[in-house]
Amino acid sequence: MEFSKFLMISLVILQAVFNPFHASIIQAAPVGSSSNLFREYIGAEFNNVKFSDVPINSNVEFHFILSFAIDYDTSSSPSPTNGKFNVFWDSDNLSPSQVSAIKNQHSNVKVALSLGGDSVSNGNAYFNPSSADSWVSNAVASLTSIIQQYNLDGIDIDYEHFQADPETFADCIGRLIKTLKQNGVISFASIAPFDDDQVQSHYQALWKSYGHLIDYVNFQFYAYDQGTSVSQFMDYFNTQSSNYNGGKVLVSFISDGSGGLSPNDGFFTACSRLKSQNQLHGIFVWSADDSKANGFRFEKRSQALLAIPH
C-alpha cells in the first residue's frame, strides 16, 4: 500500500516535470474570471493630450488605443480608399517616438490603433470596400506599415457606418485580423460595437465567424441613454455578454458624462458587483482627450479598482 502511494506521488511529480504545460492549462483564466485590464482611447479630438498626461497604475494591464486610422484620403473633402489606411489621430503629440517612450517607461503598457470611428472631417466614416479581396490586401499592407512605424501591439475595430452588408464586413475584418495575427504584426484585437440594429448585425456576423480571433469586446455602454441606472447597466451587460457569447465584454464610461451610467451615478458600484461575480473583464474609457479637463480622476479610480486582487 505504502509503495503504491509512493509510486503515485512519483508519477505526479514526473508528470509535472515533463509536462509543464499541464499546470499552465489548469491555471489559464476562463472567461468567467476578473481581469485587471484598463483601456483608453486617445488622440481623436486634437486637444494636445499626451500619453504621459494619463496616470498609469503599475498593477494593471494598460492599453492606449489611438483614434483613429481610417481608410479615407487626407484631402479637405476625404473620400474612401478601399482599405488604404491613413493616420487621423493627433500624431504631433502621439508620435512613434512617444509610443516608444511610454512603453519603455511602463512595462505594463501596450498601444493599439482603432479603425474607422464615427466620422471623418465633417461626414460619416463608412466601411465601404470595392471588393473583399482588394480591401483586405490593401488593409493588411497599409496597416502593417503604420503598426510597424509606430511600434503598436494590436488593433480595435470601431466602424459605426456601413456601405456593405454584414457578411462582407465579417469577411473583410475577420480576414484582416487573422492575417495580421498570423504574420505576427499584432498580438490582440478588439471590436467596439454599441446597441444599434445595423451596428449589431455587422459585429455579430463578425463574431459568429471570427469571434475566436477577437480578444476583447469594447462594448460602448455609454451609447445607452444618459441616466442609465445600475440595475439597467447590469441588464445591458448580461444582454451583451449573451450577444458576444464567450467573449470578454469590457465595461465603459464616457468622460464627459453624456451617456450611459456615469462614474458619478453608480458606474463603480456596477463594476464592484461584476468583480464580485468574476465578470469584470476590464474597463475602457472614451476618452483621454476629454478626461484631461478633470485630471483623469475616474481613470485613477478605475485602475485602483482593477488593481485590487480578487
Rank of each mutant, 00 (worst) to 15 (best):
L250D: 09
G257L: 11
K248R: 15
D265E: 14
S272I: 00
R273W: 01
G282W: 01
S272D: 11
D265I: 03
G260Y: 02
Q279R: 15
I254F: 11
A270N: 03
K248Y: 05
S262F: 03
G257V: 02
K275Y: 12
C271M: 10
N278E: 15
F267M: 07
L274V: 11
S255L: 00
Q277N: 15
G282C: 09
Q277C: 04
S258A: 13
P263W: 11
N278M: 01
D265P: 09
D265W: 01
G259R: 01
S255N: 09
S276D: 12
S272V: 01
D256F: 09
Q279H: 12
L280F: 14
G246I: 02
N278F: 09
Q277M: 15
C271T: 08
S272P: 05
T269G: 08
Q277L: 13
V251F: 03
G260S: 12
V251A: 09
G266P: 13
G266C: 09
G257Y: 14
I283D: 03
V249D: 13
K275I: 11
G246H: 06
R273T: 14
N264G: 10
S252Q: 08
G247Y: 04
K248L: 13
L250W: 06
L280D: 07
K275M: 11
H281S: 14
V251Q: 06
G266H: 09
P263K: 13
G282D: 05
G246S: 08
S262D: 11
S252G: 09
Q279P: 15
F267P: 03
L261C: 09
N264L: 08
